[in-house]
Design a protein around this nucleic acid. Structure first.
Length: 109
DNA sequence: TTTGCGGCTGTAA
DNA sequence: CTTACAGCCGCAA
């Protein structure tokens, strides 16, 4: 009735986060791919923003998301970058120079 | 409410 | 590898 304005953004967020959560360990996906899988093609940057604001205790595998070039999108001199590299290696993903071979580790649902 | 800007982007040149 | 531009969105002014 009075409020006929559903929070569509919150819904998108959930869909994106759920998609990220679906990436299996040992694999990586890209911002654009996640957005597309979540039904939001073209909203790659939204995925990035979401992950960047993700609480530390979210439990989501944010580290399994890299850019379309297979590169970690965080500045190489940041704790976040090192953390991502570390987490990926723990899962068996080879990371060289902040790079990942998508042919090999790219997630294909 | 409109506008402008910037981003964990993507793609093409 | 660098540069440029295109879309999409959230946020501050």
């Amino acid at each position: 009735m009075t409020t006929e304005k559903p929070n569509r953004s919150a819904e998108r967020d959930q869909r994106i986060l759920r998609t990220v959560a679906a990436i299996p360990a040992g694999a990586v996906s890209s911002y654009g791919a996640i957005a597309a899988l979540a039904g939001l093609p073209g909203s790659a940057r939204l995925v990035g923003r979401l992950l960047s604001q993700l609480p530390a205790d979210s439990g989501l595998p944010w580290h399994r998301v890299v850019n379309a070039q297979g590169r970690i999108s965080l500045p190489a001199d940041t704790p976040g970058f090192r953390e991502q590299v570390e987490r990926l290696r723990v899962e068996g993903v080879e990371v060289g120079g902040g790079r990942i071979n998508l042919r090999r580790y790219g997630w294909r649902p």
